[in-house]
């Protein structure tokens, strides 16, 4: 009986991004055939040029909105998608390119391009949710493939994805990693960052870079006060909060305090 049912269609879309999050889907290796068995991949240019027309049951959207054309395109994608899930820091918070939000884009284009008048770009890099309704936001730079499979699986089983919003610290402690901030005085964004990566960086003796954006209750002010005690100056603190999730509200607000 299930074989007669139409498989749900999956579309993957790209906006301003590096493609790393889409690649996480291709990187699923062992599970990729299961994904292909469970859904009909109807639009995924990174994997195949065979594109089927919409509407689509599940759209995965990578990248942020940085051009007037993108701002129109996302509206059409939303209209042709039953569920729309953003994947990664770009689509969810504006990405590293949201650094433009704190600078003069016209000046950039003048410096970089010989003919800046050909460049049509927006002043800000914005997340998908500022343009259309988003059903779920998957964090990460890049996303974690286990979490991606969890979201797809939850969609197929019509349940809520199990994606925790707590700090990275719980992942460090579960894997037995020694806290780099306490034991080595290394500034770490882990306490204010959402888990999901498996706490990779501290396991390699580095502080967390905040790739998954702010956790659900981030106290960046208290963390920053401790960093000051560790000897981190204002410029370094601002840089720490202005990386892949520079546009996430909690991080952009904290970065402003150190301007």
């Amino acid at each position: 009986m299930p074989s007669k049912q139409r498989k749900p269609t999956l579309a993957v879309w790209k906006f301003a991004s590096c493609d790393g999050c889409q690649l996480s889907l291709l990187d699923c290796e062992d599970e990729l055939l299961q994904v292909a068995g469970a859904v009909q991949i109807a639009n995924f240019l990174e994997a195949s040029s065979a594109v089927q027309p919409g509407p689509y049951d599940l759209s995965l959207v990578e990248g942020s909105i940085t051009t007037p054309h993108d701002a129109e395109r996302i509206q059409a994608i939303r209209k042709s998608s039953r569920f729309l899930v953003t994947i990664g820091a770009c689509a969810t918070a504006g990405g590293i390119q949201a650094l433009r939000n704190f600078a003069d884009v016209e000046e950039f284009t003048r410096i970089v391009y010989a003919k800046p008048e050909y460049i049509k770009t927006l002043k800000h890099s914005t997340p998908i949710s500022e343009h259309v309704k988003v059903d779920f936001e998957l964090r990460g730079c890049p996303i974690n493939k286990g979490q991606l499979l969890e979201v797809i699986s939850a969609f197929l089983h019509k349940r809520r994805p199990n994606i925790p919003q707590h700090s990275v610290c719980l992942e460090c402690k579960a894997r037995g990693t020694v806290c780099v901030m306490v034991a080595q005085g290394t500034p770490c964004l882990g306490p204010v960052t959402q888990a999901g990566c498996g706490a990779i960086c501290p396991a390699y003796q580095r502080g967390c870079y905040g790739c998954f954006g702010p956790q659900e209750n981030p106290n960046t002010v208290a963390l920053s006060a401790w960093w000051t005690l560790l000897g981190l100056d204002e410029a370094a603190q601002q840089r720490a909060f202005r990386t892949y999730n520079a546009g996430a509200k909690a991080f952009s607000k904290e970065a402003e305090r150190h301007g």
Partner: peptide, 25 residues
């Protein structure tokens, strides 16, 4: 407080757990 949860994880008596169900493809 950072509400990061470190105190509860290093505490040798804190015992709370969550039970999670997963389904795969």
């Amino acid at each position: 407080c950072l509400s990061c949860g470190n105190c509860t994880q290093v505490c040798p008596t804190c015992f709370c757990t969550s039970v999670e169900d997963h389904t795969d493809l």
